[in-house]
Amino acid sequence: MYLEHVNLVANNIESMLKFYQAVFPNWSIRSEGEGTWYGKPRRWVHFGDDTHYIAISDHGEGENRNLSGHQVGFAHFAYVTNNLDEVIIRLNKAGFVISKDGSDNPFRKNVYFVDPAGFEVEFVEYLSDIPSERNNDL
């Protein structure tokens, strides 16, 4: 079993694509369309590869949850990379900055960015293949 996709509701697909294209330069729009969601028109795209994708719809209203607050809701999701520095460089070149540094850990490096819709995304590079080291909470 594996996670195939996440579905993010935003108010601007193009700004979201700018962020995720910087993260995943080899991904593309797999499919797209238009329709309605409970009576409201929306456009949607599936951005990914043959196995994984992010579904993005443009019918969002209002602000995302306060990431420093305690509201119930989505906190963040994370992607593992083999080269965290390259991801940071690509996002910086696209105009995005790190929102929060990760923990100081000898077995992993991680940072957090906030996408244009306000979703926090963690990027992590593991420096060990030993599960007990990768998953420690030093």
Rank of each mutant, 00 (worst) to 15 (best):
N66C: 05
I29F: 09
N66P: 05
A75N: 12
A94Q: 07
V124E: 11
R65M: 05
T51D: 10
A10S: 15
G73Q: 03
R30A: 09
D137T: 08
N64F: 15
W44K: 12
A78I: 04
N105G: 05
F96H: 06
V9D: 01
S28M: 03
R134S: 13
Y126K: 04
S103Q: 13
V121K: 01
L84M: 04
N7V: 04
V114M: 12
E120I: 03
F119C: 11
H46Q: 13
I98N: 07
I29R: 12
P41D: 11
L8T: 01
S68F: 10
E14W: 02
F77E: 03
D58M: 09
V87N: 08
S57I: 01
D137Q: 09
S31A: 14
G95P: 03
V6L: 15
Q71C: 03
Y38H: 07
E61C: 00
P131G: 10
S99C: 10
N110G: 04
K93Y: 04
A55D: 08
N11I: 01
A55L: 14
R134K: 15
R42F: 12
V121E: 02
R108E: 03
D58T: 07
K100H: 10
N12V: 02
H59R: 05
S57P: 00
F113N: 08
H46A: 11
S132I: 12
Y20I: 02
V97G: 00
G35P: 07
E125V: 07
F77H: 14
A78D: 08
F24Q: 01
V72P: 00
E122N: 11
D50K: 14
H52D: 01
S132D: 04
P116L: 11
D137F: 08
V23L: 04
V111H: 07
P41Y: 02
Q21M: 11
F74D: 00
S128G: 08
V87A: 08
V97E: 14
V97P: 00
A78F: 06
R134I: 05
G39D: 10
F96Q: 03
G102I: 03
A10M: 07
V121Q: 06
M16T: 06
F74P: 00
G69R: 09
A75C: 00
F74L: 15
G118R: 02
P25T: 08
I89V: 14
N7Y: 09
V45F: 04
S132H: 09
A117L: 00
Y79Q: 09
G102T: 04
N92R: 11
G102K: 03
E125W: 09
E34M: 00
E125F: 11
N105K: 10
R43A: 05
S99G: 15
A22L: 06
D58Y: 06
D101G: 13
G48M: 05
Y53H: 15
G73L: 07
F77A: 06
I89G: 05
N82M: 00
F113H: 08
P106V: 07
L3E: 00
F113R: 10
A75G: 01
K18H: 04
N64L: 02
F19R: 06
V87K: 08
Q21P: 00
H70S: 11
T81V: 14
G118K: 01
K100Y: 06
G60V: 07
G39W: 12
N12L: 02
